[in-house]
């Protein structure tokens, strides 16, 4: 199988590559080459970083047009997921618009005696799972999140988690899948989710 990880100016790409190695998919490519991306069986769009600078880079490389036009299964991770949405409050950035959802900043709930901190960092559990990415055994499993911005629960929500309020832990629409958490850093549960994607 031909797997491509989209290379752009975002961090954490190496970690996704190592996770694929551990699952036995050592032959994947890390590239921004349009033809390689278009011809892949599966495309992974990872990322840790800031929305406006990464979107500017995607535009410069023409990836802002290419990614929404892909027909094979695509998996966005963390910032990758947020960039697949319509707009991000981070740097007031218009994004790729694959998911018709805005990305908003978490606002701490000061009325909560257990003071809520930003970023949402650490392990939180998944609920209300949909899509083939999540088999039933993953309901309530903990996965690893690091983010200050979130997507509200909406029609494309494929999994929920709760921090300050419920939010989209994963999205899905047609061939586009996305996780707010990091499956590559989420121990065995994360490995199962990546495997489910690669076996779609």
């Amino acid at each position: 199988m031909n797997i491509v990880i989209i290379k752009y100016n975002a961090g954490n790409i190496q970690s996704v590559s190592f996770a694929l190695d551990r699952l036995g998919y050592k032959d994947h490519l890390i590239t921004s080459d349009h033809e390689a991306i278009r011809n892949a069986d599966k495309v992974i769009f990872p990322g840790v970083g800031e929305a406006s600078t990464t979107m500017a880079f995607l535009k410069q490389e023409g990836l802002d047009k290419l990614i929404p036009s892909l027909k094979q299964p695509v998996l966005g991770i963390c910032l990758g997921m947020q960039l697949m949405c319509s707009h991000s409050e981070e740097g007031n950035t218009p994004c790729l618009g694959i998911f018709d959802e805005p990305v908003k900043k978490f606002i701490p709930d000061t009325s909560n005696p257990e003071k809520v901190k930003i970023p949402h960092m650490g392990w939180n559990n998944l609920t209300k799972l949909k899509t083939p990415l999540f088999d039933a055994s993953l309901e309530n499993e903990f996965v690893y999140f690091v983010h200050s911005y979130y997507v509200a629960v909406g029609p494309d929500t494929a999994a929920q988690s709760n921090y300050i309020h419920p939010f989209s832990a994963a999205l899905q629409k047609d061939n586009f899948f996305a996780t707010q958490f990091h499956p590559e850093k989420s121990s065995d549960a994360g490995a199962r989710i990546l495997k489910n994607f690669l076996e779609l």
């Binding site: 190592f18 850093k185 121990s187």
Partner: peptide, 30 residues
């Protein structure tokens, strides 16, 4: 470490320049 471990990890000790941090990020540190 990044190749073998599937949970987040922090590295520290003697990091005093952006280039040190950049090399660690590229090596897979979270």
């Amino acid at each position: 470490i990044a190749q073998h471990i599937n949970i987040p990890f922090t590295v520290g000790g003697g990091i005093s320049e952006l280039s040190d941090a950049d090399a660690l990020l590229n090596a897979g540190a979270d």
